[in-house]
Write a protein that binds this DNA or RNA. Structure first.
Lengths: 133, 133
DNA sequence: CTTTTAAATGTTATATTATTACATAACGTT
DNA sequence: AACGTTATGTAATAATATAACATTTAAAAG
């Protein structure tokens, strides 16, 4: 259970902390705006940190939203096999941790016999709150 | 087996035909470049047609690539439940048609009991050709 | 067949997302 | 300390996508 955060560089730490505190996915330029007071001035500084954080599995990119959330799996072992639930009304995003689903998809092989070590799955619907309205 | 294409408007038809002929996913500005000779001059004209074509299931957006491919299911009934195989080397994209997979995901319910009518799944790996190299 | 409504188009401008290129600094080994 | 690697700083620009507004076409209703 060793935290990887210790290895993060200055910019990476600043940006990870911001994303980690956010209750919702954050967009790159919103991140930029929020860290300008900490000396990060340029988009590229943000994108470089984001790239690295994605690479090491501390955050994930929600592809359909061009936004980033902190990984919810404390051990961060599934950074290449990701699944999310996205509310189409309030845009709330939750990372899905489901061993059966992960196993099913990791073992999935298509009609050519090919299988995959990496995938990204995004489910869409209405969250409980929004369903009531 | 009635083709929906009959209902397409002029711009939609031009753009669908182009994407449908392409062996690989096409990006919006590449589409724009290719249809300028047919009188479509502005990005918005492309994006509007793309939006509509996605909406009616004639094409799909590959979210991780910001690119579009024609639907491979002749009946186009699964436009809201999509799965793709993406080669990380040559970028070849194939739509996965697998009833078991579709059923599994459509019936999937997360730990809150919520389930979903819509999803997008993108698998990543190396295609047969690229694996040999 | 004409009125009405919805859908599609045309056009300009602009917003948002992301990368290229190049120079410098900090870090981890050996 | 010298070396290679990773991270940073900065400016410019590329690539992706939408807002706002005017006009036209198509479909539906009367």
């Amino acid at each position: 259970m060793v935290e990887k955060q210790l290895n993060l560089s200055k910019n990476q730490k600043i940006i990870f902390d911001l994303i980690d505190k956010s209750p919702e996915p954050m967009k790159a330029y919103s991140i930029l705006f929020n860290v300008q007071k900490k000396g990060i001035k340029a988009p590229l500084q943000v994108y470089r940190a984001l790239d690295k954080l994605v690479e090491i599995g501390k955050i994930h990119k929600i592809e359909s939203r061009n936004a980033f959330i902190a990984c919810q799996n404390s051990s961060c072992q599934i950074s290449k096999t990701t699944a999310f639930s996205i509310c189409e009304s309030c845009e709330k995003v939750t990372e899905i941790k489901d061993n059966k689903l992960a196993k099913y998809l990791t073992n999935f092989s298509d009609n050519t016999g090919m299988n995959y070590k990496k995938y990204n799955l995004e489910f869409f619907g209405l969250c409980k709150k929004c369903k009531r309205k």
